[in-house]
Nucleic acid binder design. Structure first.
Lengths: 327, 327
DNA sequence: TATTGTCTTGTTACCGGTCACATGTGACCG
DNA sequence: CGGTCACATGTGACCGGTAACAAGACAATA
């Protein structure tokens, strides 16, 4: 930078002004500086700037993993927005180490200006963060302990899914959940119960089985589903697919003998046999929303927190239908 | 840091030594400093350190997108290794802007120390990078223009896939490719041809159709496949799934009337109907390997480049079988 | 006892920008 | 014609570490 200044015959500060498009620079001076920059191939040093400015222009995104396409596409959506605002995106997974360690590395050592946390866990220790640190949490239910929240209304989604089955005439509706400690599981369970209650159906605890999101766990859950069930809500598509496979292996027809609805509208959901009825979630847009919230939080003064609620949308394909006549 | 030094009654340099576990610090001094650090809640400032050191301890990873699970899991694998070595990982996609712009932002402005480029494109302008910049390219074929390369032997994979079909007794084997400008497409085509040639079968150009990796394009390709074909190599699983769907919609049985083999062994490949025969690639391990190569490149002196070759593995499920008797 | 060497610790410059403020220059005005 | 003001530009400090080297303490040796 000093070299550029010398070549252009100005001070380093003027070069800085040109680079940052600061007002109050003569056109002539600006051109001279730009010519010098071009001639020397000068590129500003991002780290030096971060250091001087006291901000990094880098944001963090932590997610349990990237293997799950929902997280990956959340993150891709966030990146596209952040990049457009001149921020870089640092990724950290926390599936193999405590969340606190992420905070320590990225936040306490001031490597990032803000953080997007994608977490299905209610008990994630967001309290490990300084209270005023710019944070957007992408979660599965409304919550009070966080200033900026983007959440998917899982309760509503599960209610819609269950109502879809009820509307088709099902009354014995099973449920295959994810791990009980995840907030979206709790919420979806609540939505399922609410829909049943509204239909005047008392909930049979034996109709709820716990899986671990994997297709295999969906497959295994089938064995425990009481035979009188004619439909099932699976809390994600993978388990729905496993469940369908198991039902077929057990000699049932889907949807005639067992209707199955999933969650996520994962890629190729329409290519399974039968094409999956599911609750669609625009994961890319969710990531974008998180990024926009974070940008707003960084720009605005310590404004009051906002919660953005997103809803899922029922996509009816062929894995659900009216119950067959009683055999 | 100066505060810590004052509290401990030492110089800031000694504090620096303690933080970096430098040798030549008395146990007593070390303890005093550590006590002061603890008492003040001091955390080193990562950016200041980067600035002083002239290196960022951050590496970049660019990929076309994260929606494709292969890229996402490459990246996740890379992250797990880099994190263990104390590096952070900056992600940038280049699906909505030129690669040169990524280079400009991250490399020219010295935000990162090294870069992993995941690219299926032969014509990616890696030349936009300074010649000596630590770079690992994750590609689809051997190439000379890059120092550190991790590549999947796609030619070998396609050869294996085609040989599998030949061994089952097929002689009319179609091929559905990805976009022709991607290197893995060229390589897989070559492997397909080699296998046919080795079996003494002359290649019919009409048997090769071009798709765009999407299931839809696989579906559409079916219409153009000559009816005498009894098997098809699809260059990824999504197109294989689309192809199977189209074949069934066209009244064919899979695999009896048409065997289909895919590439990738994507999640749930075994849950499609029929379960997909495919070429498995350990994408997580590929990402890890890239990261290890990059770490080595950063540590070692300007050593000669290395190319790491990885191979895919045939996974036989039920979408391939011997051709049915001629109807 | 003086010399040398080793080990620990301190001193100062420096990385490359930005910031706050000082200075210079010309236009405009009474 | 001197004073004021707006605007363009320059000056030096500073951000928080690390690097290179200097210096002090102490033991071993001549």
């Amino acid at each position: 930078m000093r070299d550029v200044a010398a070549l252009a015959g100005v001070s380093h500060q003027t070069v800085s002004r040109v680079i940052n498009h600061a007002p109050g620079v003569t056109a002539a001076t600006r051109e001279a500086v730009e010519a010098a920059i071009h001639q020397l191939g000068y590129r500003p040093h991002a780290i030096a700037r971060s250091f001087a400015e006291g901000r990094t222009r880098t944001l963090g995104c932590v997610a349990p993993n990237l293997t799950d396409f929902t997280y990956a596409s959340n993150m891709e959506g966030a990146e596209s927005v952040l990049r457009r605002h001149g921020y870089d995106l640092l990724f950290a997974s926390y599936h193999d180490r405590p969340f606190e360690s992420v905070v320590e590395t990225l936040v306490a050592r001031r490597r990032i200006d803000g953080l997007i946390v994608i977490s299905p866990y209610v008990d994630l220790p967001v309290s490990a963060l300084p209270a005023d640190f710019p944070l957007v949490l992408m979660g599965g239910c409304p919550r009070e302990d966080v200033n900026h929240l983007v959440y998917l209304d899982n309760r509503d989604g599960a209610r819609q899914a269950t109502e879809h089955l009820l509307a088709l005439g099902h009354t014995n509706i099973a449920q295959v959940t994810g791990p009980q400690q995840e907030d979206c599981v709790i919420e979806r369970d609540a939505g399922y119960r609410e829909a049943l209650a509204a239909a005047g159906i008392s909930r049979d605890p034996l109709l709820t089985l716990e899986g671990d999101w994997s297709a295999t766990s969906g497959y295994e859950a089938f064995a425990a589903i009481p035979p009188e069930a004619t439909a099932a809500v699976a809390q994600n598509d993978r388990m729905a697919v496993g469940l369908i496979r198991a039902a077929r292996d057990g000699g049932l027809r889907v949807p005639d003998d067992l209707s199955v609805i999933g969650f996520d509208d994962m890629p190729l959901a329409s290519y399974f046999d039968p094409p999956l009825t599911t609750m669609r979630q625009d994961t890319f847009a969710i990531g974008q929303t998180c990024a926009e919230q974070l940008i707003a939080a960084l720009a605005g003064s310590a404004q009051d927190g906002r919660a953005v609620r997103l809803v899922s949308e029922l996509v009816v394909r062929s894995s659900t239908g009216p119950p067959a006549q009683r055999r």
